[in-house]
Simulated assay, not measured.
Amino acid sequence: MINWRKSSYSGGGGAGGQDCVEVAKLTGAIGMRDSKAPETGHLSLPATGFTALVARVKRDELDL
């Protein structure tokens, strides 16, 4: 069983503050998914890729 948890940075905008990203430690990777639609699957990144993604988000380097 995968133990998903909400990111500590989730819940900002959106309808009622329900915009949530969940993360989980997977075998050899970190998983991310939308808590509002977990049945749609998840994104799996190697730990180094996840760390790089978080660093880019913190530096506001992504065009979202």
Rank of each mutant, 00 (worst) to 15 (best):
L26K: 03
G13H: 12
I2V: 15
G31Q: 04
E39G: 15
T48P: 08
L45M: 11
A24C: 09
V57F: 05
G28E: 10
S7F: 00
L64I: 12
K58V: 01
N3S: 13
K58P: 01
V21N: 00
E61M: 08
A55C: 05
R33P: 03
G16W: 08
S35C: 00
D63S: 14
Y9Q: 07
R5V: 09
L62S: 03
R56M: 12
Q18W: 00
R5T: 12
A47G: 15
E61Y: 07
E61H: 04
S44V: 09
S10W: 02
L64N: 08
A29Q: 12
R59F: 00
S35M: 02
V54I: 15
V21Q: 01
G16Q: 13
A29S: 13
L53D: 05
S35L: 03
V54C: 10
T40W: 12
L45Y: 05
M1V: 14
L53H: 05
G41W: 06
A24F: 01
A55Q: 13
W4H: 02
S8Q: 02
P46Y: 07
L64R: 11
T40P: 00
L64K: 10
P38L: 07
T51S: 15
A24E: 01
R33E: 07
Q18N: 13
T40H: 13
H42S: 15
K25V: 13
M32G: 05
T27E: 12
M32W: 06
W4L: 01
E61F: 01
G13V: 11
V57D: 01
G28S: 09
K58N: 07
G14K: 02
L64V: 12
G13S: 15
W4T: 03
F50S: 02
D63M: 13
A37E: 13
G17N: 13
I30K: 05
L64P: 05
K6E: 05
G13A: 13
A47P: 14
G31F: 04
A55K: 14
R33H: 03
G41K: 01
G13R: 13
D19S: 11
P46F: 09
A15F: 08
A24Y: 04
A52V: 02
P46T: 14
E39W: 12
W4C: 03
G12I: 11
L43Q: 04
T48I: 11
S8W: 00
V21K: 02
S44H: 08
H42N: 11
P38C: 08
D19H: 09
L53F: 15
A29C: 09
G28L: 06
G13D: 12
L62Y: 04
L26W: 05
V21R: 00
G17L: 05
M1W: 08
G28R: 08
H42V: 07
A47C: 09
G12E: 09
G12F: 06
P38K: 06
I30R: 09
R33D: 05
C20N: 08
G41F: 07
T48G: 14
G28M: 06
Y9N: 04
E22C: 00
A55P: 01
A15C: 08
V57T: 11
R5Q: 13
F50H: 10
K6H: 02
V57K: 00
L26Y: 07
D60K: 15
E61G: 03
G14L: 08
A55V: 07
V57E: 03
D19L: 10
